[in-house]
């Protein structure tokens, strides 16, 4: 009963039948947004979140990770030229 807890993550993240990502490009674009937030925006998530809200509002029926991609495409041209330390 308690074995999954001794192997954190091996079973439970997939409970309720869903994997975190359905395809490699989804985890890639997720990680790219994390990279931008961490390495170009000093950890500030808000600029990306605002783009994501816009992307979802522009096309509510679009698959989620495609909206995520659109949001990142919109954010990239606004990034500071040099990465913040």
């Amino acid at each position: 009963m308690s074995t999954p807890l001794s192997l954190p993550g091996l079973d439970l993240p997939r409970r309720n039948g869903e994997l975190a990502f359905d395809a490699p490009w989804q985890s890639t674009v997720f990680a790219l947004a994390a990279a931008v937030i961490e390495h170009a925006l000093g950890g500030d998530r808000e600029p990306f979140r605002q783009q994501l809200i816009k992307a979802i509002a522009a096309d509510p029926g679009r698959p989620y990770w495609e909206s995520w991609t659109t949001a990142l495409e919109a954010l990239v041209p606004t990034l500071p030229e040099r990465p913040t330390p």
Partner: peptide, 30 residues
Amino acid sequence: LEALLTERGLVPAGFIEEITRRYESEIGPM
């Protein structure tokens, strides 16, 4: 996007794999 951001030095080697691994195996409802 990956090529562009990598060229700008924002995606260290192994970063994508590490983030994916963390979210698939360490960070979750457990």
